[in-house]
């Protein structure tokens, strides 16, 4: 019985501690990176770690509540991690001036095109398939 009690206490602790969950997520990232390095995959450690996390969630190896709080924190604060990168861009003085403006134009116009085309494609197919499902049923 004591073993069971310990297990329940442990689970309770993990489900309620955001810090432990953040630790678990960082550990998965680290393991993912090591796997990528060992197998020489051209895939970042975070993506391998994400696949591991998905497998663990699907198979029930880790319950959703052992990761949810930690994951929510990462997703809510993700923009913070980009802030130093933005300052890094400003270090490139060679892009001040006309060249920089041209590059900016490429990025802005292309991003508008990508977003509009992607969203329209998904939305049109989605509406079309919904209509067909309704007609079929």
């Amino acid at each position: 019985m004591t073993a069971r009690r310990i297990r329940i206490t442990f689970r309770h602790f993990i489900h309620h501690s955001r810090l432990v969950q953040i630790g678990l997520i960082v550990a998965l990232w680290f393991v993912g990176g090591q796997i990528g390095k060992a197998l020489q995959l051209p895939i970042p450690g975070g993506v391998i770690g994400m696949s591991l996390a998905l497998v663990l969630l699907m198979t029930g190896g880790v319950s959703l509540f052992s990761m949810k709080r930690g994951a929510d924190w990462f997703l809510a604060e993700m923009l913070l991690f980009f802030v130093p990168a933005v300052l890094g861009v400003l270090d490139h003085r060679e892009f001040l001036g006309l060249l920089g403006l041209k590059i900016l134009a490429v990025i802005l116009l292309s991003t508008v095109a990508v977003m509009a085309m992607t969203a329209l494609t998904v939305d049109l197919i989605f509406r079309w398939s919904e209509k067909h499902e309704r007609l079929a049923s």
Binding site: G45, M50, L54, A71, L75
Partner: peptide
């Protein structure tokens, strides 16, 4: 701080699940 984008990617697993 930039390196934390790695674990943030791992965190994507939760909403996808």
């Amino acid at each position: 701080l930039l390196a934390l984008l790695g674990p943030a990617t791992v965190a994507f697993a939760v909403p996808i699940y």
